[in-house]
Design a binder for these strands. Structure first.
Length: 646
RNA sequence: GCCGACGUAGCUCAGCUGGUAGAGCACUUCACUCGUAAUGAAGGGGUCCCCGGUUCGAAUCCGGGCGUCGGCUCCA
């Protein structure tokens, strides 16, 4: 009888009967592995355990411990969910159900009149549990395209038919694979675990709408999200992580800590409360430090400008659906009265500043920075706390320079970004290069040159980056900067965009050494992007417990009894003079209560003032992080937390 | 914009199948003057998101709108 030999991960050869499968290989290695086997990785690619092996392949048995195993059973779980859903809601049309980072989903079209909401997830889960308990086998069948089309047409599964037709058209396939588990058969390229019983812990999460193939013009399907793990323990750890993220949610912490609030009267536009305004000021001071250090000049330009300006800048044609317009009430009587727009970007204002007067080449690069408040009409349904708003302040700047100077400027901007982010505890900065979008102005050659300049600058400083095709601004390509927060989530912050066109449109010139007029290049750049959004990210990054220097209130001064009130207030004044942000809590409450409230407000230090402290002079310092620090005076405390600038 | 859910006191929420509202915390007042995560008592506070409709009667049922949440699309 013919034999075949495969190589195991440690290099040892394994001889098997011809036609042997991954399951046979696992069994040959040992009964324990045979039981644990979920799939087999052949030359790096995961396949079904039942698939036949070929001579000379390098194989690895995939178990729950292996990389990719979680994706495998989550994909299994998606099939099981579809099985349950199709049983509970006959006539359901299925589409696709892949594993995703945190679990899986499946998109369904339910029969007319049937809606599924989160309250239905329990019964779907119950039905899934039955199929998992039954330990149904995943059986693969490779069939001809014609047969598959006939089958899915007969079953009135139009999405599957469309998927097959596209596979034929785009990849020229002649056969497709089907997987059956229990009563359910799905078009699927696999692989799958041997049976449904391998899914130990599964949990459905939420129901959401999702366009078929992500296309807004096509039908909206009902997406059900879920997740699956190899153990109940892993599942509860996952649910706990979600709980943690919830506890850090800036939308919850913001109002709780008195940082900001939202009101129905102005959806998507935050109201900053006193504590939050302190936070914003502290963030702004860090940005200003970078501006001062790097030769920026500060300007401030209007938020409302004539509509004509926006025609000139190209925003009206390319950005109108995101803009708010403002009309004077005069228009009620006179329709010819001027129309204004509320700026969605600061660049036209900066261009008007540059256009004022003549500029010599000796002035370049001219760096004009502006903490510019912009307003953008974001579609309802996309707003999300501070992270997606309709009005925000950009730490914006526009650098006017020559083409020769551009690369140096970009390098300088990247350096400012690295320094600034590190200051806030973000050490890992990812860079993304976005190229020409469909809706844009300018010629191909200019875009190519601009994209090349950005690429060259990144290469010069040896910065790795990802390319994001078609994601640039309408006036130029850009580099975006992302950070990863304490929970491992990625956020886009800064941006650096090259622009040949705005200077053209505003006819900006400088006088060169040759005494002739030249067109400057313009770089739009923001270090933090949106100040408000960045504050929201900081809140989540620190879970509301800011480092000492960033805490809006650094110390709560707690008099033990009323007779200590004067001493407490005197201490407060002394600390204020030293640049410490302290707050006296002189309510008629117990010390225990005041401490509790200060803890809940996430104030890093508590200064207790009682008889003992009056005598010693100072306050008993309790820190959230380190507990009792002993008694010290105002000067020693201020020095400890590095007040008055570091 | 689209799909689904939700909207009751400042906050978190209760209020079954229709009979015009309740708790805890917060707030105010009084008493207590307190030593490292909640002192006690009393009191005030609500167009039940808005507009229509059904009904003798709507927080509750129906329709429309607004807002919020989870997603999709879009996006800083």
């Amino acid at each position: 009888m013919a034999k075949l030999t495969v190589t195991l991960p440690d290099g040892t050869p394994l001889e098997l009967e011809a036609g042997a499968s991954g399951a046979d290989a696992a069994a040959a290695i040992g009964p324990g592995l045979a039981r644990a086997a979920l799939a087999v990785r052949v030359d790096g690619e995961i396949r079904d355990l039942a698939a036949p092996l070929a001579d000379g392949e390098r194989i690895e048995i995939v178990t729950a411990m292996s990389e990719g195993a979680l994706e495998l059973i989550r994909h299994d779980a998606a099939h099981v969910m579809a099985t349950a859903v199709c049983e509970l809601y006959p006539g359901t049309k299925v589409s696709i159900g892949p594993p995703i980072e945190s679990g899986f989903y499946y998109d369904f079209e339910f029969p007319d009149g049937v809606t599924v909401s989160e309250s239905d997830l329990g019964r779907i889960e119950e039905r899934m549990a039955e199929h998992i308990a039954a330990d149904e086998t995943f059986e693969r069948a490779d069939i001809a395209v014609a047969e598959a089309l006939e089958r899915f047409r007969g079953e009135e599964q139009p999405y599957k038919v469309e998927l097959i037709e596209d596979l034929v058209r785009d990849e020229g396939v002649e056969t497709v694979s089907l997987y059956r588990n229990g009563p359910f058969t799905d078009l699927c390229k696999g692989p799958h675990a041997p049976s449904t019983g391998r899914i130990e812990a599964v949990k459905l999460g939420s129901v959401a709408g999702a366009y078929w193939r992500g296309d807004e013009t096509r039908r909206m399907l009902t997406r059900i999200y879920g997740t699956a793990f190899f153990s109940r323990k892993d599942l509860s750890a996952h649910l706990e992580r979600i709980e943690q993220a919830r506890a850090r949610d800036h939308r919850r912490l913001g109002p709780e800590l008195g940082l900001f609030m939202f009101r129905e009267e102005s959806p998507g536009m935050p109201f900053w409360l006193p504590q939050g305004t302190v936070l914003l000021d502290l963030v702004e001071a860090e940005v200003r430090a970078q501006l001062d250090k790097r030769g920026y000049l500060r300007i401030d330009t209007p938020q409302i400008l004539d509509e004509q300006l926006w025609h000139r800048s190209g925003h009206y044609d390319n950005y109108r659906e995101n803009m708010f317009f403002a009309e004077p009430s005069e228009r009620e009587r006179d329709e010819h009265a001027r129309r204004f727009a509320i700026r969605p970007m600061n660049c036209p204002g900066a261009c008007l500043v540059f256009a004022d007067g003549r500029h010599s080449y000796r002035e370049l690069p001219l760096r004009l920075a502006e903490f510019g408040r912009v307003s953008r009409y974001e579609r309802e349904g996309v707003l999300h706390g501070l992270l997606r708003v309709r009005a925000f302040t950009q730490d914006d700047a526009h650098v006017y320079c020559t083409r020769e100077q551009a690369a140096d400027e970009i390098v300088e901007i990247v350096s400012a970004i690295d320094e600034l982010y590190a200051r806030f505890g973000f050490d890992k900065v990812d860079v993304e290069l976005s190229t020409r979008p469909e809706k844009s102005i300018g010629s191909d050659e200019e875009w190519e040159e601009a994209e090349g300049m950005l690429r060259d600058a990144l290469e010069r400083i040896g910065r790795e980056h990802r390319v994001n095709p078609g994601d640039g601004a309408f006036y130029g390509p850009k580099i975006d900067f992302h950070v990863t927060d304490a929970l491992g989530r990625s956020w886009q912050l800064g941006t650096c965009q090259l622009d040949f066109f705005m200077p053209e449109r505003f006819d900006l010139t400088y006088q060169g050494a040759d005494n002739r007029d030249h067109r400057p290049l313009m770089i739009h750049r923001a270090l933090l992007g949106s100040m408000e959004r960045f504050a929201g990210i900081l809140i989540e990054h620190y879970g509301g417990r800011f480092p000492d220097w960033l805490a809006p209130t650094q110390a709560a001064i707690l008099p033990v009894a009323d007779r200590h009130g004067d001493a407490a207030r005197a201490l407060g004044a002394e600390l204020a003079a030293l640049g410490v942000r302290a707050r006296v809590d002189d309510r008629g409450e117990s010390v225990g209560r005041k401490i509790r409230d200060a803890e809940l407000a996430k104030v890093p230090y508590m200064l207790v003032v009682g008889d003992r402290e009056l005598e010693a002079g100072g306050a008993a310092v309790r820190s959230h992080a380190d507990g009792d620090l002993g008694t010290m005076g105002a000067g020693a405390f201020a020095a400890r937390i590095g007040a008055g600038g570091e």
